[in-house]
């Protein structure tokens, strides 16, 4: 019989490491975070954990997929003292999942979870074939994905939309979290009394920049909120809807990460163009005749997105709405 991870040995090792790093009292862990990651996405994981460090004490179990060889476990901890000399630690248990893929099944890591605190599973890997979140229904309180990791985000989201009423584990999509500031920017832009009539008279929106999953979710949110009619076609960068029988065209051009800049152009039925552009200096500005609007615009980093989701209890209602009728 093989033993991939010995819970008692892991606990003993963690206590010892923590004691060595900091003999002072440690803050209580607030949650478990289980991360499925391939080596190529390691940078994102490190970035996120570095951000979390010192903000939330937690137990993190990292499943390194496709590592090859024999499945084995490693234990480490990083701690930082707070102003009262108590320490906030991230306890890290890394399971290197070998050729037998034994590390990937929940049965291997579930005994290592701390009971009575929430369990978040973060799938930081390609999603196209992943059984997410149903694989974790028995152990996870929430599941985090990023549809930017899909080769075909529209298909994945459409499938998710179809299954949404069956999902037992609430799901969060980091693509959705990243576009949060864009949603707020657009909603605010149209919030003044002078701008509101334009919102109800749009003929098209063009988003230059942003990843395909981000653009799709942004347009879906806009469509649902404005109650535009029509079917969302798969595998396209252009979508056609109608409002009161007037056509509306949504286009996604120049796909690239949203934090590398974007331009959002709204065209009204009478041909007026209203443009919102990322200044590249931390705020977005409106460009166009008689437009005087600027607002702080900051995309959340992966760490910020993770922290934001960890502090929530459920899926974002707007995200679920955006998936409707996809």
């Amino acid at each position: 019989m093989k033993r991939y991870a010995d819970p008692q040995a892991v606990e003993h090792q963690l206590r010892k490491i923590q004691q060595e790093i900091s003999p002072n009292e440690a803050r209580t862990n607030l949650f478990n975070l289980v991360v499925y990651v391939s080596d190529q996405d390691d940078r994102l994981l490190m970035e996120a954990l570095n951000y979390l460090h010192g903000k939330r004490p937690a137990r993190v179990i990292v499943i390194r997929k496709n590592h090859g060889g024999v499945t084995h476990t490693d234990v480490t901890a990083r701690c930082v003292p707070d102003e009262n000399d108590k320490v906030l630690c991230i306890q890290e248990i890394v399971i290197f999942s070998g050729d037998d893929k034994a590390g990937e099944v929940p049965e291997t890591w579930a005994p290592l979870l701390i009971r009575e605190i929430p369990v978040f599973v973060w799938w930081l890997d390609n999603l196209d074939q992943a059984q997410v979140p149903q694989l974790f229904d028995d152990v996870a309180d929430r599941c985090f994905i990023d549809t930017a990791f899909c080769d075909h985000p529209q298909e994945f989201l459409k499938d998710l939309s179809r299954r949404s009423c069956e999902l037992k584990t609430p799901l969060s999509d980091f693509s959705w979290v990243r576009i949060g500031p864009l949603l707020k920017l657009a909603a605010n832009f149209f919030n003044t009394q002078e701008m509101r009539p334009h919102l109800h008279n749009l003929a098209g929106i063009t988003l230059q920049g942003g990843l395909p999953s981000e653009a799709l979710l942004f347009f879906q949110w806009f469509r649902v909120k404005m109650n535009w009619q029509g079917k969302t076609e798969l595998s396209s960068t252009e979508w056609h809807y109608t409002q009161d029988e007037k056509p509306i065209v949504l286009k996604h051009l120049n796909p690239k990460a949203l934090n590398r800049g974007f331009t959002l152009t709204f065209e009204t039925q009478d041909g007026q163009k209203l443009e919102l552009k990322d200044s590249g200096e931390g705020y977005a500005k409106a460009i166009g005749p008689a437009l005087n609007y600027s607002s702080i615009f900051k995309m959340p980093t992966t760490g910020e997105a993770l922290l934001q989701e960890i502090d929530k209890n459920s899926s974002d209602r707007l995200f679920l709405e955006a998936l409707e009728n996809l």
């Binding site: 949603l183 657009a186 919030n191 003044t192 009539p197 909120k225 707007l318």
Partner: peptide, 19 residues
């Protein structure tokens, strides 16, 4: 009077009007 349906559900319930 035009509404702004985009605001619905966004997590800035505390966004003030221009002031």
């Amino acid at each position: 009077m035009f509404t702004n349906p985009l605001l619905d559900g966004l997590q800035f319930a505390k966004e003030p009007v221009p002031f």
